[in-house]
Simulated scan of single mutants.
Amino acid sequence: MNIVKTPIEDLMVISPKVWKDNRGYFYESFNAKLFADAGISHDFVQDNQSFSQKGALRGLHAQKPPFAQGKLVRVISGSVLDVAVDIRKNSATCGQHFSIVLSGENHKQLWVPPGFLHGFLTLEDHTIFTYKVTSYYDRESEIGVMWNDADLNIKWNDNLTPEELIISEKDQVLPVFKDFASPF
């Protein structure tokens, strides 16, 4: 397993070693010791999974303390553009984002620690996205920022028009980043 730091402190990309043969493939998606050695020593309490069609955009979301969540995200089938935004007020990279394509083919994962907004855009039909979290979901602790905030300047996908995006009503009324008061 290869765990690589990103330009944003504490945010990491995990690339597992994949063994392939004529039966298919095998890989280890989680190893507590290897993760702890890389600085990811959180306890996971819940696994979540979503199924989406191409153009589904989910995010940008987080939960505020004391229900803040770290997320270990990956794609089982299909692909997404996955995005994490640093909202830690004392971080040198506060307001900056990192994006990566996660797919059922590349098997990459992203560790998104507490203090980050998270979202993804589904790039293929029938995409299955899964993630482990470090805290239970709490509706009252939900926070978020508008996915297309001009100050964040996230390049979601040049191949989809705004009309092709599938966005929940909740995600269409989130605040912009400059009006967002981070609890981190």
Rank of each mutant, 00 (worst) to 15 (best):
D86E: 14
V18Q: 06
N159T: 15
L81K: 12
N153G: 07
W111E: 02
F184T: 13
I167V: 15
K89S: 14
E105L: 12
F35S: 13
D43I: 09
P65N: 13
G39D: 04
I40F: 07
A92G: 05
V85T: 02
Q46E: 12
L165G: 11
E124A: 03
A150C: 04
I8A: 11
Y131R: 10
G78V: 12
Q53M: 05
G104N: 01
N2M: 12
S41Q: 02
V45I: 15
P66W: 03
L121E: 13
F98L: 06
M1A: 05
I166C: 00
A181E: 04
E9G: 05
K89Q: 06
S77Y: 07
G39N: 09
F180Q: 01
P175D: 00
L60S: 08
R23A: 08
K33D: 13
D149Y: 07
K64S: 12
L121M: 01
I166W: 00
D82M: 11
I100A: 13
L72N: 02
Q109C: 06
F35M: 15
Y27P: 09
I76P: 00
S168K: 05
R58C: 08
E169K: 14
D10Y: 01
T122E: 05
K132F: 06
L174W: 08
Y27R: 13
P66K: 15
P175L: 00
S41I: 00
H118Q: 11
L174V: 08
P65C: 03
S29V: 14
V80G: 12
P114W: 01
Q49T: 15
E140W: 01
R58E: 07
D158M: 01
T122C: 15
D86F: 01
T6C: 10
S79L: 02
A181V: 07
K178L: 14
Q46I: 09
S29H: 04
S79I: 03
T122V: 15
D82K: 10
S168D: 02
